[in-house]
Amino acid sequence: MTTHTNTPSPVHLPDLSDRPGRGRRSLLVVAGVLACGVPVVFTLNITRMLVMGIDTDHRFHQLTGQGEILFALWLLPLLALLRAGWQGRRPGTAAGWAHLVLVAAGAGCAVAAPGGGAPALVGLIGITGSFVWVALPLRPQLRVGVQVDPLLMPVALAASAVLLPYAVDQIGLQNAATTGFHSENPHYFDMAWIAVVLAAYALLAGLLPAARVLATGFVVAMVWLGSAGLALGESTAWSLSFLVVGVLTAAASVVVRRQTPRN
């Protein structure tokens, strides 16, 4: 370690007093393993299927709602919460909202399309996620100031105008799948779920300065979704719309980031 000091002030040492104790950290580890175990296993399994070419008919779903995008939306907020908790910091507002939105959107979609074991999956996420919140030494600050961004907000509402009809469409497909593969594997539910979560990400980024960072996740997911759709022969209209919304949000996000003053 190198310290840099102007004499005669004493050399500063890191303050270790606010780090969580061993008990709290143990609790965090247990909650983290319970909450992250399932998505990690799912991620590895779906990635294996993608690499090995298993169920290639479902490659689009594996790359997006059933697989990589869902797991990213599931895991990243959890990891952010756990990391902050481990370091004794208050987790960021964006991470808190992202996790809540995932659970709430999943619950809503599971009510709308209860087939294929969706309620059980959402229940599992909700319960294990709540363990993490209980284990955190400090909760994320969810009540923060609202400041509508004139660039991100219109893009967010345009995105919701694309994503929510898409979610409705996918829920309709899920409910229609009473027999066959998709009656047991709720891929359409998953697609609806991530669509609702992404719409919420965009809206939160447009509304809350503390959650502007969610725009980055939204952009990556939308570009990924649109590109995968175009590459794998999914509906051109939906895929192009996702891609265009993603690119527009990226442009808006860059402008917003450049204009945000340093605090």
Partner: peptide, 8 residues
């Protein structure tokens, strides 16, 4: 915003 909100 209004168009997006209306369509949503």
């Amino acid at each position: 915003c209004l168009a997006g909100a209306y369509l949503t």
